[in-house]
Amino acid sequence: MKPKALILAAALAMSTPFAATAEMPGMRGTQHIGITVPNVDEAVEFLVDVMGCESFFSFGPFGPFDDDWMTKNLNVNPRAVINVITMVKCGNGPALEVFQYSSPDQDPSPPKNSDIGGYHIAFYVDDIHAATQYLKDNGVRVLEEPHPLTGTGLEGMEWVYFLSPWGMQMEIVSAPNGILDEEQNNRAFWSPKSDS
């Protein structure tokens, strides 16, 4: 194949959706997302009082252990301690398992999206402009203004990033009329606004 043909073939392969081929027994979907914060009480206060989530229960501490249980089971420093975990649910979506760790090798800086292991959590809202203004009115640092996602399978969606008080990247999204991929391929991308 000529170089341009190879580039075109690679571009087409990357733009083609893949159907699930794995068969993990009984897999149904995302049950929870774990996040580590510097202070569980302050994080849960933000999630409840600003984001409108519901706090369920807390448990812990776990550790310190004399052996390497923490490394074998959680891939963290053997002397790490989970001070407390609080379970939080935000609307119609997976729960958040909010951890507060202490560890000799803990990095206090949240990863950026560009870092390996970087991540963010996106919350669906009905009106992204009203939600953006609400965040600003509550002293939340919003990065720029909502942007449309054009030229992608998510066309029809708008998004904007914001930072939690502890510096974690979060996002609000809205697609009141659906997204292009759903329309073109007659399939539903999961949304918290429906049972799909």
Rank of each mutant, 00 (worst) to 15 (best):
F56K: 12
Q31A: 12
L96V: 01
S109F: 08
Y101R: 05
D127Y: 03
K136E: 01
Q184F: 08
N186Y: 10
M51H: 04
V81P: 03
S194H: 06
N186D: 09
Y134R: 09
V44C: 02
I172F: 04
A20K: 15
R187M: 14
N177Q: 01
L12A: 11
P111F: 04
R187G: 09
L149F: 09
P192M: 05
I85P: 00
Y124C: 10
F59Y: 10
F18S: 14
D67Y: 07
Y124A: 02
N39D: 15
K136R: 02
L163K: 07
G178E: 01
I172G: 08
V125D: 14
E145N: 09
S55P: 00
P61F: 01
G60D: 11
T30F: 09
V88Y: 02
G26Q: 08
D68C: 11
T36Y: 00
M1G: 11
A131W: 00
P94W: 03
Q133Y: 00
S102M: 11
P25H: 15
P176N: 10
F189C: 08
V40A: 02
L135F: 09
D68A: 14
R187D: 13
E171A: 05
K193P: 03
G93Y: 02
C90E: 05
M14V: 13
V140P: 00
Q169V: 11
L6E: 08
W159R: 14
A22N: 12
Y119R: 09
D107N: 11
S102D: 13
M51Q: 03
M70L: 10
H120I: 09
I179N: 06
K136V: 11
L180R: 07
A131M: 03
S191N: 08
T36V: 13
T16K: 10
S58W: 05
Q169Y: 11
T150I: 15
Q100G: 02
V44A: 01
N138H: 07
P192Q: 01
I179R: 11
F56A: 11
P38T: 11
N75A: 15
Y119G: 01
V50C: 04
D49P: 01
A9T: 14
L135A: 01
R28G: 12
E145W: 03
Y101V: 03
V76H: 00
S196M: 06
Q184G: 07
T150E: 07
G178D: 03
M14C: 12
R79N: 06
D137I: 10
I128N: 02
N138K: 03
V160G: 10
T71K: 14
V50F: 06
Q133V: 05
V48Q: 07
A20F: 14
F57N: 12
A175V: 07
W159Y: 15
E42G: 01
Y124Q: 13
T71C: 13
S15E: 11
